[in-house]
Nucleic acid binder design. Structure first.
Lengths: 229, 229
DNA sequence: CGGCCCTCTTGACCTGGGTCAAGGAAGCGG
DNA sequence: CCGCTTCCTTGACCCAGGTCAAGAGGGCCG
């Protein structure tokens, strides 16, 4: 019996405008699952039999070096899907996934997903669009890692986290700083130091997990050059 | 009148098994173009009206920092397509493209490509597969840039450039070393230095643009730890 | 309220790899 | 054959950012 709670997946762009019968087909093998903070969801290299829609909480996608060092590739926030970029071909996950905070997800089996993909042009195109967006994001990340300094990446992150528009803005960091740091390719200590500099420069104001951006203009200027001290 | 030379695009996986009428539709607005070494093909940020199939030569996809520093995202070799990951939505190129050596490409207008995509499931799935592969590659690059040392990346590059199997192998570098260096996130000087170390360690033998891998096993071991001096 | 844990901050130090500069070597047109 | 250019190598130096270590809060449970 299909649970109503599964229907939240319609919030994902991927499933918008999906025909009811296709949606039912996809949800037939779906179930809601809970994960506690730090609990693994899937492992890199394991066979990808499902992909996920995040209902609440937060999830990090990451890789590990042989020495156990971790690089966060992406942080997933509610109402978006993850792991979908790989499954339609019956491949393997390229990253590990684990809950950052207590999370609720819908796990969608991929058995018959490619048939839906083949019969539903709209969904295939949406998936193409989704992958294309991730591709751009990843290209941006590669460029940022190689062409920008740590300070520039931190500033860029702050600017990306607040809606555009002039004046001030507030950011509430829902996830630990070390996860954010790894996401932008920096050690936690360095992240902390950069925030200290920005704070003492009067560009931002930090209070616990809340950051006020006091002068967005100056922050953008700092990112575009001054951030390379 | 369609030129026969255009039919080389069938070598691309993207167009395999394409119906003749769809192929004709795509090739209707296609043309062969030549680019001299260093000549730009398209620019990041410009509207993406076409994508490309590389017939001969080599092409680099790259980003520029505001200071003009360059990061090569990908090096394209003959018989593969590039710029296709973005065009179907009428977006903009996320990277610059320029010929590395004198090159011949087929330029494919994207006007009606999405209609082909919608009517041809196979092509849509192949495109999905292609994007998925690039996504994995990019994730690998991000991980490599943050989790591995320069030496490890160089060793990894060498190993990736020769077919698997035991014993020796030869690599002929078709493109300048500074392009390879940028591709793997290293300065040309560092690339040169790492090769010198590997050479003096008896792991490889360098002669101009040809590199012999003398001991693949040792090179793999070096990459997995020793390469972090 | 006190002890414990976990995250964050800050300081002191170190080093991988980038930068700058000076040759080689190889191709190429004249 | 020579001069010029382009690419590559090597040496000397430097610095951004990583590492190690020592607190500083702050939240939670008994």
């Amino acid at each position: 019996m299909m649970q109503d709670s599964l229907l939240v997946v319609r919030k994902a762009a991927l499933f918008a405008n999906l025909l009811p019968e296709d949606l039912e087909q996809i949800l037939k093998n779906a179930r809601v699952r809970q994960f506690k903070s730090h609990e693994p969801i899937f492992s890199a290299g394991s066979e990808a039999r499902a992909f996920y829609f995040l209902v609440s909480g937060s999830v990090r996608l990451f890789r590990l070096s042989p020495q156990g060092e971790e690089k966060v590739i992406e942080v997933i926030m509610p109402d978006s899907t993850f792991g979908e970029g790989v499954v339609f071909l019956g491949g393997r996950y390229p990253v590990h996934a684990a809950a950052v905070t207590d999370s609720e997800v819908v796990e969608l089996a991929t058995n018959h997903f490619s048939s839906v993909l083949a019969s539903n042009h709209d969904t295939a195109l949406r998936m193409l669009a989704g992958l294309s967006t991730r591709l751009h994001q990843l290209i941006q990340d590669v460029a940022s890692l190689t062409l920008e300094s740590a300070g520039q990446r931190v500033a860029g992150y702050l600017l990306s986290q607040c809606p555009p528009g002039g004046g001030q803005a507030a950011i509430h960091m829902m996830i630990p700083k070390n996860v954010i740091a790894s996401r932008i390719g920096v050690k936690a200590e360095t992240f902390s130091r950069v925030l200290a500099v920005l704070r003492s420069g009067g560009l931002i104001h930090v209070a616990g997990n809340d950051i006020q951006i006091l002068d967005r203009e100056a922050l953008m200027r700092w990112r575009d050059g001054v951030g390379r001290p």
